[in-house]
Design a protein around this nucleic acid. Structure first.
Lengths: 155, 155
DNA sequence: TCAATATGAATGCAATTGCATTTAAACACG
DNA sequence: CGTGTTTAAATGCAATTGCATTCATATTGA
């Protein structure tokens, strides 16, 4: 490498895009959390975890796999699993292949609560995001964000 | 109103856009925080507060004004100001007009640390966001997010 | 004027997060 | 084998957040 392009300053468009990105995320997440709480449902983070586990099927997932999917720190995930387990939404099973590890599997109650959460979460997404964008705009946003994710991943 | 469009479910594009939005924000914020910490600088939230106060000029801002700008809860803002004040980055002044209130003003040290933070923060934005987008893509992203903010604001 | 209410800000306490360390099992290799 | 290193997960502790309450001052209206 002959230069260090990652140390240059961003354009004002990029700065504003980032600051808007953070603000939209915050506004949307706050609104969604608020609706979940109003419906006496668990917080968003539980949904994400339960969704990943449901997608993983009966085989479940190792905590370290969930950690990567959810972008959670190891200790926070460990305690999120504690809370989910306390409500019987997930089960900790001993891992056959690796005596240090576990396998986390969603329970029927976990699937049920995730579905109930979606009943609030889905409409909330629509009202905070979807309702304000044409389908073309939504697709453009989705594409740009997809580019950013592929860029950030391997870094 | 003859119907309730905010209660319908989002399209799969909107769902994916939202989930990517949250993920990008998380990845970017984590990376930025990490760089700030590596440079022994305060967290991102301090930057946002200091920037608003610097923009407000010598007149300063009332806490409840900052609260709206920063999307922070009242009690969290109160304690953020505590921390900033402890480091002499801001000053709490009695408010002339309103005996209940205060005016928060940035200090010279506050301006200095904000500037130092920008030296890390700016390049971090570039490397996480700017470097992965053409200027056209950045403008499109910025525009779409701008639409969302104006939509979310009055709601 | 004064009682009732509303608003700006702080604070006590529980829940959550972040950080560092710890425990236990797997690997690597002499 | 056996020692040293790495990896999976848990845990103690400090810092931060969220929630509800509190305190003080403003505002309103009888």
């Amino acid at each position: 490498m002959t230069s260090n392009p990652t140390s240059t300053s961003p354009s004002s468009t990029v700065i504003r895009a980032w600051s808007r990105l953070a603000k939209v995320q915050q506004l949307a997440a706050d609104a969604i959390e608020q609706r979940l709480k109003a419906a006496d449902l668990p917080p968003l983070a539980w949904y994400d975890a339960l969704l990943e586990l449901e997608r993983a099927g009966p085989a479940g997932l190792r905590p370290f796999e969930l950690e990567r999917e959810l972008l959670l720190s190891q200790c926070n995930l460990s305690r999120l699993i504690d809370r989910l387990e306390k409500e019987d939404y997930v089960e900790r099973q001993a891992c056959q292949d690796d005596g240090r590890g576990q396998v986390i599997a969603i329970t029927a109650a976990g699937r049920a609560i995730r579905r109930r959460m979606w009943g609030v979460y889905g409409p909330a997404i629509q009202s905070v995001i979807g309702a304000h964008l044409s389908s073309g705009q939504a697709a453009a946003l989705d594409t740009a964000l997809g580019t950013l994710i592929s860029g950030a991943r391997p870094a």
